[in-house]
Design a protein around this nucleic acid. Structure first.
Lengths: 161, 161
DNA sequence: TCGCCCGATGGCATAATCTGCCAATCAAAC
DNA sequence: GTTTGATTGGCAGATTATGCCATCGGGCGA
């Protein structure tokens, strides 16, 4: 999957990465056309990028609001004792909650994790917090911020020249 | 694109949404097989979901670390004067920075925005902050947290039954 | 209970796409 | 200028997508 010496990316590879980050389901033919290559080598390059692990996968972006998730929250969690077992347990429990879209271990004097959460409304949020997050062993502090407006999300990673 | 009365989702639609959030480039044939429908109606449903706006698009996930982006930071921004023009200007300037992966306007007594940033290293980060973010008109406070470990990201939106 | 009606399904045929193979091309090193 | 190696383009077979039409099934009224 991941070679020890990843070959450098030329301009074709970079164009491919840029385009499939924007249009993940673009056909190989159109991809080839846009990068100025014939379909054959274009597909070979795409497969190579997938094999190398540079392309981790493909996702459809679903409109969470249309599914009823009108509330997005950023939750900062602090843990009382910093043992590996506590962390591992917390991460496992949190991964089991589908409302938790993202979990980052971060720096901060009073904070250990930031969670990004999607729920329908405040009632849901309160229930999730009180019944599923606060009770996790080791959680000593919880601080919530709510997203007033997502200015932009899910941007592609810049592919430098 | 977005109908005023979106038709309710049945179990087929929900399965489609679940699967394409995990495998965005799955072929229609395999998708049909997995949801227990023949290719014809499966494709019709997929297209309908795209037309309705529920599926916003498709993205390839690129491994940022392999591209050299070893540092991920969460930056909290406070603005000194809360006028619409200031906000709009800030958002425009920030959207022009490819290192800024996400920009959320959030609640908080001292905070107005959270940015998620990817850079190669601390030098890059310092330069981005001092040369491109701090100078934006209206920015009065900047506070950085760094991501020690992304436990998980890019999870799909739960599609409730 | 029966029969009608509307929407959704499955299958088919055609069109488009994917994908492996081969010879030809290009670039760099000698 | 020649050789060597990798990359490309085109072609053919296999796979997939997509529009069309008859059929099926569920809900509604009689």
């Amino acid at each position: 999957m991941k070679s020890p010496h990843p070959p450098p990316l030329d301009r074709y590879d970079r164009r491919i990465l840029e385009l499939i980050q924007q249009e993940g389901r673009i056909s190989n033919q159109e991809l080839a056309e846009r990068i100025g290559l014939s379909p054959s080598p274009c597909l070979r390059r795409l497969r190579a990028l997938e094999e190398s692990g540079l392309i981790l996968g493909y996702r459809a972006l679903v409109d969470a609001r249309q599914l009823g998730y009108r509330l997005m929250a950023l939750v900062h969690i602090s843990m009382d004792r910093h043992t590996p077992e506590r962390f591992a347990n917390f991460e496992r429990q949190v991964a089991a909650l589908p409302q938790v879209q993202e979990c980052l271990m971060i720096t901060g004097q009073e904070v250990d994790y930031q969670l990004k959460i999607r729920v329908e409304d405040m009632d849901d949020y309160q229930q999730l917090l009180l019944q599923h997050i606060t009770p996790i062993e080791g959680v000593s502090g919880v601080h919530s911020n709510f997203v007033l407006r997502p200015v932009f999300e899910n941007r592609g990673v810049p592919v430098a020249p």
